[in-house]
């Protein structure tokens, strides 16, 4: 009995740690995706139909590393290597909705990462230009995006310079936050356009910053409340 218990415990522990490698079927992933939209996104106030549809359509599990697939639809960011993360689903939806993308929009994304945000945008807008500085990530993203979309253009380069040939952009999504906002990006933003930037350390994206370029070219910014959770309420 004792031996059986020990063996059973060992098997259980082994299963626990390798359970991340289990794969779901396509239908199961779709169910997970719908549940994700229902419980993590629309329930938190995202109401833009195009955004919600895009989140339902893009198979997020294809944009995460194999070992993370099981967690692809969980309410959290996931590591994708090179110190980068794929944003939490809600963040992706929030960033998409806040820039008000339309069918004719031309969007620039800085930091393709896994390619997931670009895929979500590609479901909605006319053209998505995405730049990734880390070559292996950029190549993976290009391969995945090119297989699915013909309106996404991937460039492996330093995002600092933006993509001048295709400027101005209706909106810019900066997924890899930097300590400064590169002046060329501000320059390449259309007047009246919006730029959205997450601020936070890996796995902790609590704050988003919206940069708006007025019709007069004046720039203003707004820190959006921690979008992942309910507003921070102080004890008093």
């Amino acid at each position: 009995m004792g031996t059986f218990n020990k063996t059973g415990a060992a098997v259980f522990i082994l299963l626990f740690f390798i359970s991340g490698f289990n794969q779901l079927t396509a239908d199961e992933y779709e169910r997970e995706r719908n549940r994700m939209v229902r419980t993590q996104i629309s329930s938190r106030g995202i109401s833009d139909r195009a955004t919600l549809d895009a989140m339902r359509n893009v198979p997020r599990h294809l944009y995460v590393p194999d070992v993370q697939r099981r967690y692809a639809y969980q309410d959290r960011p996931l590591p994708i290597g090179y110190g980068q993360t794929i944003s939490q689903p809600f963040i992706v939806a929030f960033m998409t909705e806040i820039i008000e993308p339309g069918p004719d929009s031309k969007i620039l994304e800085i930091g393709a990462g896994s390619g997931y945000q670009a895929a979500v945008l590609a479901e909605i807008v006319d053209q998505v230009y995405t730049i990734e500085i880390i070559r292996p990530l950029g190549e993976q993203a290009r391969q995945k995006l090119n297989a699915q979309y013909d309106n996404v253009y991937v460039k492996i380069a330093d995002g600092y310079h933006g993509w001048e040939e295709h400027a101005p952009f209706d909106a810019i999504v900066v997924t890899a936050a930097a300590e400064y906002i590169p002046p060329p990006l501000v320059e390449q933003l259309r007047e009246g356009g919006k730029m959205i930037i997450p601020v936070g350390s890996p796995f902790q994206m609590q704050q988003l910053m919206l940069v708006e370029k007025g019709e007069d070219g004046r720039i203003s910014t707004r820190s959006l409340m921690p979008v992942r959770f309910v507003p921070f309420e102080r004890a008093n």
Binding site: V67, Q68, P77, P79, P202, F203
Partner: peptide
């Protein structure tokens, strides 16, 4: 960092 997001780290 991954300790909190990847079981395999334990």
């Amino acid at each position: 960092y991954l300790l909190f997001v990847e079981r395999a780290q334990f």
